[in-house]
Amino acid sequence: MHDLYIFITGPLAWAAFILFIGGSLYRLLAMLILVNRKERFIFSYMSLRYGLRSILHWITPFATVNMRRHPVLTVVTFLFHICLIVTPIFLLSHVILWDESWNLSWWSLPDGLADFMTIIVIAGAIFFLIRRIVSPEVQFVTSASDYIILAIVAAPFVTGFLAYHQWFAYEFFMVLHILTGEMMLVAIPFTRLSHMIYSPFTRAYMGSEFGGVRHAKDW
């Protein structure tokens, strides 16, 4: 157990964070280099003002027509993504680990709230899964990879939830939690979870084209 713990919270965690941060930077840089090489015109159309205008509309709940058309999905999507990002960063246990390793400490969520937010992420993942299976227009464009990335995202939350409550085999789920968390980090730059990296750029570009060239809204 100790060797395993030391390995997965030591070298493996280092590897996961290096791949996550390095991979994300690599993907970002590769994109910019490719733009510079083949589609340099994009730079001349990018507009800070219209890019931000578009991003702001699309990160504000119900600020776009399509969000208002799907109120349930909008609520689920926002809660899911907010909880997905906020919970692991501000979870007390995680903050303690940062503190122990790096002497870095920040505000943390009360465990009860973090627990609730974890349930939201899990419920959101189940909602997306059902939507993927039940909605014909989503099913039609679904491939195995869609289920896999959903599972990659849900796994650290499910295992974290079980470990926190110490139901079933605590140590097993604790180890699994650490492993799946690391897996998710690594998956972000190398799967379509990379929408986390790319979406601000695709959004800003479309916003710039709509705002700067087409003088129209894109929401």
Partner: peptide, 17 residues
Amino acid sequence: HLEQKQGPVTCGECHKK
């Protein structure tokens, strides 16, 4: 515990419910 590779190291091993 980590130095000695003995004893609990994860949260729930000590903070048992």
